[in-house]
């Protein structure tokens, strides 16, 4: 199953879990499964102004490629990247 890595600032919404394995054939299904498990994540994940998504270290242009057209593979690792500025 694809694995989603949760960045530190969002862990409070997922019971402080570091990573979550989810069923999902597409990126859309994977993210929907995550939101359905943790609805409080919805605002952060749908706010594409700040959110960037990387799969296996490569950035996905979700606007261009489309959430549902990005096909997930068994061992894919999804990184949710939001800006942090702590110094």
């Amino acid at each position: 199953m694809p694995k989603v890595i949760i960045p530190s600032p969002l862990r409070e919404y997922v019971d402080e879990r570091y990573e979550i394995q989810l069923e999902g054939k597409s990126l859309a299904e994977t993210i929907e499964a995550l939101i359905s498990m943790y609805p409080d994540l919805r605002p952060a994940l749908l706010d594409t102004l700040f959110l960037s998504i990387f799969i296996n270290g490569k950035k996905i242009d979700v606007e261009k490629e489309g959430w549902d057209r990005v096909i997930m593979n068994e061992d894919d690792e999804v990184s949710l990247i939001i800006p942090i500025a702590g110094g």
């Binding site: 960045p7 530190s8 600032p9 942090i84 500025a85 702590g86 110094g87």
Partner: peptide
């Protein structure tokens, strides 16, 4: 560039 949050950084 460097940034931190909690136990994480970039």
């Amino acid at each position: 560039h460097g940034a931190v949050w909690g136990l994480e950084g970039r």
